[in-house]
Write a protein that binds this DNA or RNA. Structure first.
Lengths: 102, 102
DNA sequence: CCTTTGTTTCGTAATTCTACGAAATACAAA
DNA sequence: TTTGTATTTCGTAGAATTACGAAACAAAGG
């Protein structure tokens, strides 16, 4: 039997995870919208009109981005204010920069 | 009925497509490997030992990357020499840079 | 306390992804 | 022409993603 590496490295997995978060046009839209100004915040409803999906689906995409760490949500019912998670956003930026600049 | 944008924009879709190509650790590995030196080329077998998947699966990942435009393959049976598709690689680099630098 | 409002969660269905081994392919060498 | 080598394609299966509308939620206002 040939010896194989058993697992992917941490950075490889992290990179893939960030990329997957961006890998849907709706999520690209959301991130574009929020990253426009790094301190910008918005509510789910602010985007709902401009995106060709149901509100519940938009909510799931927001959840996916939150789980990936790229955004965060401040709960203030019935509103939830979303904004970029600056720390992870910067980390992702650096990872992609390093990835492409080899 | 509320007026919604019907479609995502071209750049949003393109961005998502590139991100999806990177959204798997095996493909991150492959791109890392090839982009190490932008002119580096390699054969499928060169990577097979270092990655925890079957050769056929590796082949499918290579196909996915080729279809996404990030790599290209020069056929020279039974070898196929893969390398970065420089033009699209640069385009992707710029897209991600612009995406994160807002 | 009942209703309204903005949002998320649930149930469900269709599609896509990931993976493997077996079989096919295409040229080179014997 | 047969065999060998490197790789891809095929058939299949299980898991994950994406989508929707209905229902649930939680606070505010009547």
């Amino acid at each position: 039997m040939v010896t194989k590496k058993k697992y992917y490295t941490g950075p490889q997995k992290k990179m893939a995870r960030y990329a997957k978060a961006i890998a849907h046009p709706a999520r690209v839209y959301i991130l574009d919208f929020l990253a426009d100004n790094i301190d910008k915040c918005c509510y789910s409803g602010d985007m709902a009109e401009d995106i060709p999906i149901a509100r519940s689906t938009l909510s799931e995409h927001l959840k996916a981005l939150k789980e990936a760490g790229l955004i965060q949500g401040e709960i203030n019912p019935p509103y939830i204010k979303y904004c970029i998670n600056k720390e992870n956003w910067e980390e992702a930026r650096e990872m992609f920069e390093g990835f492409f600049r080899k």
